[in-house]
Design a protein around this nucleic acid. Structure first.
Length: 571
RNA sequence: GCGCCUGUGGCUCAACUGGAUAGAGCAUCUGACUACGGAUCAGAAGGUUGGGGGUUCGAAUCCUCCCAGGCGCACCA
């Protein structure tokens, strides 16, 4: 069990959490870190809750009695305990709440953790010669968000884009190119042409036995290490693809420390096999080289070499993992890869364990659910694809229409449409638990109202607008009367729980937790500036509220930045 | 057939990993000072948490058996 340790951040609401737990620990004669506070079902009952059942049993009284007794005894500065049946609730005094949270939020290290060590994150990893489709959106966006969360938690992060640029599929592609390739088409629309070749290959393969044979030869040529014709054309395909991918990465705001395709590990494959051999895990079966995993509860063996001597996906993943361990000595290595590869990950990590690598336990498969179309699973081979570019373009187009309707005077309309459209797509993906399957639905993806990215962007832009119209710099928190903000506890509770959201999102590798919390913050923020006038109030009140708006703006901007959602100042 | 994942209002999702009266958003219905930007806010209605059984003070959450859907199951990645 991961212990709940806000002490490491001691900011925002966590400050009170620690105080309350200390007092409880003392009263109950227990360790502070063994206690965990919950949230009351109804926010009106307070900010923290402590169910007494378990402890009452130990003390041989009944829970309601214990809650009542503790409510009478406990003394925590600025916090009022109250018993509600078997629950002990705690309400923070609004003035102290506003004061504490405002002062913490304004610090530059708000929500920053102190964890150490390197975290390697492999994500995106599209396949060369194929267009990026909506399936790649998830890994790209989840991986980027987790990288930023890890970084915020204190880790040093190494982002790797493990391009699918190797394997027998390229033998197939080269074989298809040799038969039907057109230089002209390749120079105009390279990816479309390559896709066309790939699809045609799979169509004609069924009736033409010479085709798979040619493909096999081509891949063997590719793996030979020689700089032959096959390799030259493969290199060209790679370059064309990268050009297109980079354009999408720019739009999504994804960056990588290393773009290393599977081919990067090419010269480590033979040493890997030798090493596996030396650990005694290899066996031969039907001409192929395998690692049997039955003794670890996995029925299907892991293949590391085919009967005709070529390597496989698993071989390259094993080599990559070993290489990364030697290069980075990572604390954790995350692989943001779809759930359909669960078995593969079990196999390849188990092979490492079997071969004696104790660090294999640091590898985590961050799996996520499949995106399907109404018609069924996406399939490049069968031409059932939905290109990521098309999805982004349509969102941007719609954003442009809405801007034209709502804010025709806006400057930089095109740039803002791009930010809003792309933001909507990214946020939509990140607001759900990652392991659930998704049936792609245009209506839902292109929604800009309610719990959406544009709603958050709008809230942020509203704050910017108020600050702009104030026509003076946002007051610092030392210059205002924080007591004037005690009428808005909901806002400060939401802002004050931001560090907790960041921490949980990272601990659970679940960006959704941050996404959901940002919605809460925005909702509290919208209610705040809707019911409370900022500009034109008395000088003191205006300053205080302006300051609150600035903190709201700052937190929303920070959170959206971590998720990778752009934050226009006007929209 | 075996393994893994999923099932919560009409739709899309939450529920702090066993806690209080299961919460949001869409859609539906009411309302909001000629608006510090209405991509908003306030409210109403909508639920036997796929079904049965079990574990205990307490279950959407854990165990078990069904049902439905998805994914995977050696020379693809």
């Amino acid at each position: 069990m991961t212990l709940f340790m806000p002490d490491t951040l001691h900011l925002g609401l966590d400050h009170f959490d620690v105080q309350i737990r200390s007092a409880l620990a003392q009263a109950l004669g227990l360790e502070k870190d063994s206690l965990k506070l919950e949230r009351p079902r109804d926010e009106k009952m307070g900010e923290f809750a402590f169910p007494c059942f378990r402890f009452a049993k130990e003390k041989k009284t009944n829970p309601a009695e214990l809650a009542k007794k503790l409510a009478g005894e406990l003394s925590v500065e600025f916090v009022a305990p109250s018993a509600a049946g078997p629950f002990l609730n705690f309400r923070v005094e609004p003035a102290a709440l506003a004061k504490r949270v405002a002062s913490d939020v304004s610090k530059p290290n708000y929500g920053c953790g102190n964890l150490e060590g390197k975290v390697v994150v492999e994500y995106s990893s599209p396949n060369i010669a194929k267009p990026m489709h909506v399936g790649h959106l998830r890994t790209t966006v989840i991986g980027a968000a987790l990288s930023r969360l890890a970084n915020r938690a204190g880790h040093e992060v190494v982002r790797i884009n493990h391009l699918g640029d190797w394997g027998s599929q390229f033998g197939k592609l080269v074989a298809a190119w040799n038969r039907w390739g057109s230089e002209e088409k390749l120079s105009v629309e390279p990816i479309d042409h390559l896709l066309e070749l790939y699809v045609r290959y799979h169509k004609e393969e069924e009736n033409d036995e010479s085709l798979p044979a040619a493909a096999k030869v081509a891949f063997q040529e590719l793996e030979s290490g020689e700089n032959n014709k096959t390799r030259v054309i493969w290199k060209r395909f790679t370059e064309y693809s990268l050009r297109e991918f980079n354009h999408i990465f720019d739009r999504l705001g994804s960056t990588f420390d290393f773009v290393r395709g599977e081919s990067w590990y090419e010269d480590q494959l033979d040493p890997l096999i030798d090493w596996l051999e030396s650990t005694g895990v290899l066996e031969e079966s039907d001409g192929a080289t395998i690692v049997d995993l039955k003794d670890h509860g996995i029925k299907t063996p892991c293949l590391v070499k085919t009967a005709h001597g070529t390597t496989l996906y698993a071989t390259r993943d094993l080599a990559a993992a070993k290489s990364r361990w030697e290069e980075f000595q990572f604390e954790r290595a995350l692989y943001v890869v779809g759930a359909e590869q669960n078995l593969h990950f079990q196999q390849f990590t188990t092979v490492l364990k079997k071969a004696g690598c104790e660090w294999a336990s640091r590898i985590e498969h961050i799996s996520f659910g499949l995106i399907r179309l109404q018609e069924g699973k996406l399939s490049t081979r069968e031409g059932r694809i939905l290109s990521l570019t098309e999805v982004l373009d349509r969102a941007v187009e719609l954003a442009a229409e809405i801007i034209e309707e709502k804010n025709p005077e806006l400057d930089h309309k095109e740039a803002v449409s791009e930010q809003v459209g792309v933001g909507a797509i990214i946020f939509h993906d990140l607001k759900h638990q990652r392991n659930k399957d998704v049936v792609f639905n245009w209506g839902e993806v292109l929604s800009f109202e309610g719990d959406t990215g544009p709603y958050l962007q709008y809230s942020h832009a509203r704050c910017c607008a108020i600050l702009r119209k104030a026509d003076r710099p946002a007051p610092s928190i030392d210059s205002i009367d924080l007591g004037l903000l005690s009428d808005s506890p909901e806002l400060f509770v939401a802002l004050g729980r931001y560090p907790q959201a960041l921490r949980e999102a990272w601990e659970k590798r679940e960006p959704m937790i941050l996404a959901q919390h940002l919605l809460k913050i925005a909702s509290a923020g919208n209610a705040f500036y809707h019911e409370k006038r900022v500009l034109g109030e008395s000088e003191e009140l205006e300053s205080a509220r302006l300051c609150a708006i600035d903190l709201l703006r700052k937190t929303l901007g920070d959170g959206l930045g971590i998720l990778g959602v752009p934050t226009p100042e006007e929209m």
